[in-house]
Design a protein around this nucleic acid. Structure first.
Length: 213
DNA sequence: CGCGTGATTCTCT
DNA sequence: GAGAATCACGCGG
């Protein structure tokens, strides 16, 4: 019997391309998180590209460190980072090994396991908000530091993988400036989203924090 | 609805 | 020591 599209992982070579090609092509793909209580599936509606060692917005801009190590590894793996003292965000590594490019997964529509996601997203006022924002998406899927380096292209019963899903036609893809990025990196129009999708997060320009004392 | 601010800790300078 | 690829909440209109 033939596996349905939603059961087929994206092949590794999907990610072994320039990140600006991969990012819009990820819209409509389905991320599956396997938990002890059952699967959670998310249809991706918003992503952001970070393009190699010369992108001033990228965590890899200042070289190879312990935190960004996974970005320098093979494509198709999950890079999870911790930020603002509280939150995790997840990326999928792109391009050839050694070239530190990645796509930040910013938002999606929960298509299965919403009851499991709600348990971790108690402040969400409705299901559209469950994964509306990169840290919300990671929280809804219970993605933390432990999943850093996971191979999202592996077959079988892995904790997190990315399936073929149904790609979004090019005429429904929009793009604009990246969110939350400071300095020169902010101007790149490398945030991609699905037109008129209610699960896409609102745009917010980066706001530097003042010192408290 | 838009805007401002506190939360909380890791990472790199 | 500063700033962070963010979120939630309170306030004012």
């Amino acid at each position: 019997m033939i596996a349905p599209p939603d059961a087929t992982p994206l092949p590794r070579h999907f990610f072994d391309r320039p990140v600006l090609e991969v990012a819009p092509d990820l819209l409509g793909r389905v991320l599956v998180r396997t938990t002890p209580d059952g699967p959670i599936r998310v249809r991706l509606t918003e992503v952001e590209a970070y393009d190699g060692p010369n992108d001033p917005g990228s965590h890899a801009y200042r070289g190879h460190t312990a935190r960004n190590d996974v970005m320098f590894g093979p494509p198709g793996h999950v890079y999870v980072y911790f930020t603002y003292g509280m939150w995790f965000c997840m990326n999928l590594v792109c391009g050839p090994e050694g070239n530190p490019s990645a796509v930040l997964l910013r938002a999606g529509e929960i298509v299965e396991g919403a009851e499991l996601a709600r348990k971790r997203r108690l402040s969400a006022r409705n299901d559209k908000e469950l994964a509306k924002g990169p840290a919300r998406l990671a929280t809804a899927l219970d993605v933390t530091r432990e999943l850093n380096g996971t191979d999202a292209c592996a077959a079988g019963d892995t904790p997190l993988r990315i399936l073929t899903g149904t790609p979004v036609p090019a005429d429904q893809v929009r793009n604009g400036p990246r969110t939350g990025v400071s300095g020169d990196g902010a101007v790149q129009p490398w945030r991609y989203w699905v037109a008129n999708d209610p699960t896409v997060s609102p745009y917010r320009a980066h706001a530097p924090r003042r010192r408290s004392s």
